[in-house]
Each structure stands twice: as C-alpha cells, then as structure tokens.
Write a protein that binds this DNA or RNA. Structure first.
Lengths: 193, 193
DNA sequence: CAGATCTCCTAGCAGCGCTAGGATCTAGGC
DNA sequence: GCCTAGATCCTAGCGCTGCTAGGAGATCTG
C-alpha cells in the first residue's frame, strides 16, 4: 500500500512539474515555444509521458490557466482589501487586473484566449473561476445603481480585458495605459465616492 | 507591352483570388483550417505560387485583415450616418462594431488577434486603419467633456473589443450582449443627449 | 525465483510552413 | 520558322508540429 501511495505522490509531483515547466517556458519564450518535445526535454522525460498525464497540449495549457485563475483571484482580493473608498476599490481592482495581464502575458493568454474548454459564467462553475469574478463584482456592485450588477460587472470586465489585449498586442501604446484606466474608472464611478 | 500588362493584370487577379479564398475558407472553417496546401488546392495552383505573391501565410492573413479594416470602416460610417442624436450615434457605432465582430469572427480575428505587423495608433498609418478609428472618435468626441477625446475613444474601443472577444469565445453568454452594450453606452453617454 | 503488471522509451505517422531545383511553356531575335 | 533566353510553375523535400503504437525494461506479487 505504501508503495502505491508513493507512486501516486510521485505521479502528482511529476504532473505539477509538467505544469510548472510549461508555464515557465511560456512566460519566458511564449506559447509558440512550448512544444511537446521541448516540454519533455525540460522535465527530462520522453514525450509520451506527457500524454499519460494530460489528454494533449491543450489540457496542459488548461492546467496552467487554472493556476492563473487562482493567482488572479488572490491579487484582486488583495487589491480590493487594501482600498478605502468605493471608487478606490474599483480603481485598485482594475489596476491589479491589467497589471496581471501585462506582467504575465503568457499566463493571461492561457486563461483568456486559449483554453476554451473551461466553463465560464455558470453559477456552478469551478470555484477558482468564480472567485476572480466575485472580486470584480464586489467592486462594481456599489456603483450599479438601478443596473444589474452582474451584467455591469461583465461589461467592466470586458473593458479591462479589451484594454489588456489591445495594449499587449501593440495596437494601443502602453504609455497611455494609466490614462485610459483613469477615464474608464471615471465612467464607471463618476462622482468622488 | 500588351502581353506584359495582361500578365500583370492576371497576376493581380490571382493575388485577389488567394486573398478571397483565404478569407472564405477562414470564415467557413476557421483560420486553423487555412493551410497553405489547402489554400493552394482551393485556387488550383501549387503551394509555391502562394509564396510568389506573399512572403508567407502571415502576409496572406494581413491582406485579409486589410480588407476587413476597409469594410469595418464602411459599416461604422453607415451606422453613424443613420443615427440622430449624440447618444444614438455612439450606440449605433458600438452596435455596428460588435455586430461586425460577431458576424465575421474569422475576419475580426485576422484584424485584431493575428496580423500584428500592421502599425496601429500612428497618425501617419494607412488610411484604412485610421478611418475606422476616426468613426469611433467622431462618435465619442462630443461626449468627452474635459477628457482627452483620443484616449477616451481608445478606451471605448477597448471595451467593445473586450465584449466582442469574451462573447465570441463563450466566456460571456451572448444572450446578454444587448444588455451589456446598453450599460456600456449608459456609462459613456449618461444623460439623454 | 517465475510470472504478471506497470512504466517508460524508441520509432513513426500525418500534417504543418516553407524552399530548392528542374521541367515546361512563352517571348523575342535572326 | 527556328532557337535561345527567360519567366512560370510544379515536384520533391526539409525540419518541425501534436500525437500514438509497440516493445523493452524495471518492479511488484505469489
């Protein structure tokens, strides 16, 4: 029995090793550099070992994305907790979100442009998916007025996502990022609240 | 001389044929189905012919994207021209933009997620790139108040882009799209202007 | 110690973007 | 009208991709 638990433990460790290697490789050289051969070399095993842990390359990216969702939720929570007023909270959460996207572009890509097999926007979805959205929701809710807080949060989220994507791809110059964020916050939290 | 002009004309036609085939194939089956072999078969030539017209597959996608920018600019212009008030104009332009993204997802992808070798946000950029942004700018400008109209337009554009992307990938349910757009318009054009 | 099981690697498949080299067809000079 | 020069286009192939079949080897069980 002990030998089996040891094997399971070792298997779990190796699985984590794969995810970590994939993430680091992606963040260092982009997802296009993450090939199954390269990844196998990195963990010092042969290619087929990857497929004994994951269904395919996409599943590995999904596993990385899940890590990202957990970390993003934490960062949003920290940012919101440190804020004082209502407008401050929204600004803090927004800044934390776009910072995350800018500083971990590969991770953000795995979460929001690849890995579509994750279910979003469902009340019974995985916790790590709901937590991050919940932080946004709590920041937006006080500013909703008569509007549906959920839909408004989705809209705000989309704005942040759009900013992150367009700035990341060079379609919008990053220099004006703070300025754009400021204007966005101004539209969602107009008064000095 | 006539034979040479005939050749040039035929060459230009074939180049257009390639772009059209790539676009139709992408819109029918997605960009992952657009391979150089498949494309060559579609235009009934061999693979290397593609490379006598374009530097590579990326250049073909860029050519498709350029077509997209021209068409998007037209649709935004039409939408804005048909609108009456200030708020109406913003709503019309926003709806036209997201409609474009939803109805031509492959084209939109070529424009805004692939084909990064196009220069954005430069005053001396190609006309087709500036026109679409110009339409947005003219719709946003009257609502800028003390804020920088250019930056505000960029922010609004990012919001539309984010909505389009998240709804397209299934991360936000499409059903509430109109609702989200309504809330977004409400934040950028608050009063009944 | 023998046999069953489980782990892992070598080798290979089909497809990808892209390119070198030669065949074929056309155009112009005598 | 032929014959050479040049443009046009295709066949074949390179190195890469994600993924998988099959067997070798180590490990655990009786």
């Amino acid at each position: 029995m002990t030998t089996q638990t040891r094997r399971e433990r070792e298997r779990a460790q190796r699985e984590q090793l794969i995810v970590t290697a994939a993430r680091e490789l992606a963040e260092a050289e982009g997802w296009e550099a993450v090939t199954t051969r390269r990844l196998a070399a990195e963990i010092e095993y042969s290619q087929p070992v990857l497929y004994s842990h994951f269904k395919g390359k996409g599943a590995i990216m999904t596993a990385v994305a899940v890590q990202g969702f957990e970390e993003l939720a934490v960062e949003l929570r920290v940012a919101r907790a440190a804020a004082r007023g209502t407008r401050d909270a929204l600004a803090a959460v927004a800044a934390a979100y776009t910072d995350f996207a800018q500083k971990r572009p590969a991770l953000y890509d795995a979460m929001f442009t690849h890995a579509v097999d994750l279910t979003f926007a469902t009340p019974d979805g995985p916790a790590y998916l709901r937590e991050g959205f919940g932080e946004l929701l709590q920041a937006v809710q006080p500013l909703a007025g008569d509007d549906d807080p959920g839909i408004l949060t989705e809209t705000f989220w989309a704005s942040l996502h759009g900013l992150a994507m367009l700035e990341r791809s060079g379609r919008l110059p990053v220099e004006a990022h703070d300025h754009r964020l400021d204007l966005l916050i101004g539209r969602f939290a107009p008064a000095e609240t």
